[in-house]
Simulated assay, not measured.
Amino acid sequence: MTVDSDAPEAYLGQDAVVDFGRPEISELASGLRSQHTDDVDFARAAFEHVRDNIRHSWDAQDPRVSISASDTLAHGTGLCFAKAHLLAAILRSQGIPTGLCYQRLTDDGATFMLHGLVAVFLNGNWHRQDARGNKPGVDAQFSLGEERLAWPVRRELGERDYNRVFATPSRKVIETLEATNNILDLCRGGLPSDL
């Protein structure tokens, strides 16, 4: 994977999207950290919390638009991008470098959409994690070994991994999310198809 900076500390910042300075995020992160002092255990707990307690907008058929980590936590729902923003915020708030990653996926081999996930820097390496949320056919798990993402990339269909760890969310993704007032409409054909 390529990184925006060789210094993991570059992946600890906050902005309007990964807004971990908000009290509700700090409270959640501190509560999880108090139960898991080891960085790997804490990262796993944060991942499982976001994966299992924040519903994926499409699965829940919830039209609300969540972009920032704090919006996602407040709504309790969001697309993969929003869930990645929340997970990054929780981890960064507790000193674990976390970047944003993307995949280009398809359901039919003709229409493509971006999928968002994170990479965490633990034990001296970057490890991608996908907190999208599990359902029949999707079994994403926290792993520092072999990746256990929601979907494997099928190169024969034109799918691809973007092997870059972004320090900040993709501008294209954020602008697309900001331009809608119904996330379900966006899912029906308005998501970005590439970076």
Rank of each mutant, 00 (worst) to 15 (best):
F47I: 12
E48W: 04
H49L: 10
V50M: 03
D52G: 08
D52L: 11
D52F: 13
I54C: 11
I54D: 06
I54Q: 10
H56D: 15
H56P: 02
D59I: 14
A60P: 03
A60Q: 15
D62I: 12
P63C: 12
P63M: 12
R64T: 15
V65E: 00
V65C: 12
I67Y: 02
I67P: 02
S68N: 09
S68H: 05
A69P: 12
A69F: 06
A69Y: 04
S70Y: 14
D71K: 13
D71L: 11
T72L: 10
T72Q: 11
L73T: 11
L73M: 15
H75F: 15
H75D: 14
L79D: 13
C80V: 06
A82R: 06
A82W: 03
K83F: 13
K83H: 15
H85T: 12
I90Q: 01
R92M: 10
R92W: 05
R92L: 09
S93T: 12
Q94I: 08
I96P: 03
P97I: 09
T98H: 05
G99Y: 00
C101W: 00
Y102H: 08
R104W: 02
R104C: 12
T106C: 07
T106P: 07
T106Q: 06
D108R: 09
G109C: 07
T111W: 01
F112R: 08
F112M: 02
M113W: 14
L114N: 13
H115W: 03
H115E: 09
V118W: 01
V118R: 01
V120D: 01
F121D: 05
L122S: 03
L122V: 06
L122H: 02
N125I: 00
W126R: 05
W126V: 09
R128D: 04
R128W: 06
Q129C: 13
D130T: 09
D130F: 01
D130S: 05
R132G: 01
R132K: 11
R132F: 11
G133C: 03
N134R: 11
N134M: 00
P136R: 11
G137A: 08
G137D: 13
V138A: 10
V138D: 04
V138G: 04
D139R: 09
D139C: 05
A140T: 07
Q141L: 13
F142N: 05
F142S: 07
S143H: 08
S143T: 07
S143D: 07
L144R: 09
L144S: 09
L144M: 13
L144A: 10
G145T: 10
E146M: 12
E147H: 06
R148L: 03
R148K: 15
R148G: 00
A150N: 01
P152D: 14
P152K: 10
V153F: 02
